[in-house]
Structures are given as C-alpha cells and as structure tokens.
Amino acid sequence: GKGLGGIGDDSAFTVLKKAGRRGLCGTVLIHKVAGALAEAGVGLEEIAKQVNVVTKAMGTLGVSLSSCSVPGSKPTFELSADEVELGLGIHGEAGVRRIKMATADEIVKLMLDHMTNTTNASHVPVQPGSSVVMMVNNLGGLSFLELGIIADATVRSLEGRGVKIARALVGTFMSALEMPGISLTLLLVDEPLLKLIDAETTAAAWPNVAAVSITGRKRSRVAPAEPQEAPDSTKTFP
C-alpha cells in the first residue's frame, strides 16, 4: 500500500504500473523527515511538498527465501529450496523475479544493480559520488548475525561503486510477519536532508544512529597478538 501522502519507494518494477510504486520500508525514512520538519514548525503543505521531492530520491527492494504466512491464508507463493524471490511485497505478494540461491555478496550486487539500473522505471538515481542513507531492514525472520552479513556486503558493494554511505540503519523497521528476508533502502541525501534524518526524536523504535559517515571509517581491527608465556622458573632441564 501507499504510505504518507501516497509515498511509494518500491524499485522492483521495470515498468510502472497503474497503481504506481508500493510504499515499502522507505516510508519509515519519510516519516522521520516529515516529523523533523513538523517539529521545526514547517507547515503541512510545505512538508508534503518536501516529502514528495525526497521520495523521488529513494528506492527499496526486497528479497526473501519464502513468503510470509498471513493469518487465515496460505502462502501467496512457494519457492524451491534453492530459490530466492526478488522484489516481493510486505504483504506476501510475489516478486518480479525468481533467482537461484547465491552468496550474500552476489544477491546484494544483483539487488543494487536492479535498483540503480536507469532503464528501470522505478530506479533510484544513485551513481558514483552520490551520498546515501542505507537501510537494511529485517522482513521478520532473520537473525542479527544474518542482517550484519547483508549490511557488510551492502556497504562493500556500494563503496565499490564509489557511493558514500552517510548513515547506515540496520534492524527491523517494517516487517512482514515471519518472512525470512531483507529489504534494502537507499535515500540520496545532502546536508540539509541529513540534518532531518539526524534530528533528535523521542520515538522509541528509532535507532540511536551515530551521526557520522560510514564511508572512510575503519570497520575492522587486527586481532591483538597473544602474549608470550613467561618462562616457568620452576622447570628444570637435563
């Protein structure tokens, strides 16, 4: 469905359908921006205007190992053990493409290729030099470890494309019951928009994200060398 003010951030469809783009996890970022503007005293009409501009600079794509189980209904689609559904909806709708199981790096690359493909009518206009807010969203059935693996793969893939990751949000923001999958959201940002994302909020579910860029930060450390054992003075040698 559509989010606030008819917001749609779905980047799955190569040709726009009559109903337009679906509202997915990017809606959460729109709510944050709209709330920050309202808190700053901006009027409703101006908020709607700014939010619509922001939406055009954002895209989301989901991938899952299976559908979710909507109460009282059978799964809307079924996958083989070696298949993954790309571009599915948060209500269990089938996606736009079915692919074979692959590594996290390969799946993330495929997702980003699809999201940024300029021939895709619902693509997000990310290119080398762009600065983005990256959101890795748990669709319901993944562990923090699995989310971390996907987030790491996404950071490396984006940076490999020359994209700067201004902020990274990883967690459960818009789930689809127990669906074992994730969605990736990319939002193009400049400094004024980033200030709205960083604005303080009392919303309990909003993560306490450090207001620092991910790109350029050292994300790994060399393990400390194990200390050498002190010689045992009680030992005797022949």
Results as ranks from 00 to 15, higher is better:
T202P: 04
E93D: 09
T27Y: 14
R98Y: 13
G216E: 15
I90Y: 13
D113R: 15
D105S: 11
I165P: 00
M111W: 12
T119P: 00
P128D: 14
A211V: 08
G35S: 11
R97Q: 15
V63L: 11
G43N: 12
A48Y: 10
L186K: 11
K109F: 08
D152V: 01
G140N: 05
S67C: 06
S67T: 03
G72C: 08
I47V: 14
P128G: 14
D113L: 15
S220H: 10
T55D: 09
A38I: 12
A48F: 11
E191A: 06
V108N: 00
L188M: 13
G41H: 13
T55P: 00
D190S: 09
L142N: 01
H31M: 11
F77G: 02
L86E: 07
T185S: 06
T55L: 04
L112S: 00
P75V: 11
Q127N: 14
H123N: 15
V96E: 07
E93L: 07
T236M: 15
L158R: 00
T76R: 09
I165W: 04
K195F: 10
L16N: 08
G171H: 09
A104I: 07
A230C: 04
A230D: 06
S213A: 11
P227E: 12
E229D: 11
P125W: 08
H91K: 09
G162N: 07
E106H: 05
N208V: 01
L196G: 02
V189T: 07
V222G: 09
E229T: 12
